[in-house]
Simulated scan of single mutants.
Amino acid sequence: MENKIEKKYIPLAEYFSSATDDKIQLSFTEIETIMGHSLPNSSYLNKSWWKKTKPPLKHYLAWIEQGYYVTTIQPGYHVTFEKPSSNSNAELDSLENAKNTFITRSIETDDARDLAKLLSKLDAETDFMLYGKNERDPSVQSVRKKITNLRKNNSSSIIVAVVEGQIGGLISISGNKAPRAKHRASIYIGIIQKFTNQGIGTLLLKDAEKWAISNSIQRLELSVCKSNAIAINMFNKFGFTIDGERKQSLKINDEFENEIYMSKLLNI
């Protein structure tokens, strides 16, 4: 795929590759969120850009090679992609059992607004984060600056999960510049509640480990609230071990909370 289409369309190809619905409608904003890049002006102005299936442009391979075709276009608003069904009479799985389509990718500067919204939502949804609801208000400008700085070095990174056209989770990898600590990095993971229990956390951890190894990081570290049994169990399954416990590390809703420190040594 990388040899056929521009790099920026690869996340879109991965999205359609993992999709299970025969008919998908995506807004232009959702498509750009999946890509992590803006669509060209021609896609907003001309329906023919979406219907094109001939070189030299090859963006259409992102969906054509996954069996999807563009059926309707509302310029600037949404595009409908459909896959011919091999059994149009087959019963659909219930919505309750259906899993959301998602991909993971590295953060892009254009994600600043969506990332700021995600951080605020995570703070509001759970008591397991460092900040609570409305305790911080990350500005788009400050988030964009952070992303820009991250993309300039190889000791830190953010990987996001794009779920059904929106950023629904992330894993942050924070490394060290000091020579004696360059081999280790701390990670932070957050997924909004409606997208939990779908394997997103595991995939983010795998991507973080892959990124760490490629950047010569040999030890990943994290801290987690002792009462967050679900997260601790996930980290255990992924090979993290407990290093220790910091008592009364946090004060949440006027109650002290202990933190568990965990780590994983990577084979490089």
Rank of each mutant, 00 (worst) to 15 (best):
A124K: 04
E255D: 05
T29W: 04
L170P: 03
K51S: 12
I107H: 02
K226S: 08
N197Y: 07
L118K: 01
F240N: 08
T109P: 01
S223I: 11
M234D: 05
W50F: 08
E135Q: 15
D137L: 11
L61F: 14
V163Y: 03
K237W: 00
K237R: 15
H183K: 06
Q25W: 07
L265F: 07
N154S: 10
F235E: 10
V140E: 11
P40R: 05
F16K: 07
A112K: 06
P84T: 02
I159M: 03
A13I: 00
K83D: 01
T202P: 10
T109L: 11
S120K: 10
D123F: 06
Q198Y: 09
A62L: 14
S139W: 05
I189M: 14
D127W: 13
K182N: 08
Q166G: 09
A212M: 03
I64F: 14
T80E: 05
Y261I: 11
A112S: 06
K145R: 13
L45W: 07
G190Q: 13
K47G: 10
I159E: 01
S106M: 07
K247N: 02
V143F: 08
L115S: 04
K251Q: 08
L57E: 15
D123Q: 07
K121E: 14
N134S: 13
Y69H: 06
K210A: 15
V70I: 08
Q198V: 07
N149L: 04
T53R: 14
E96T: 13
K117F: 11
S227H: 09
A116S: 12
N215R: 09
M234Q: 15
P56Y: 09
S42E: 12
D243V: 02
D22T: 12
D110V: 07
A212L: 02
N253A: 14
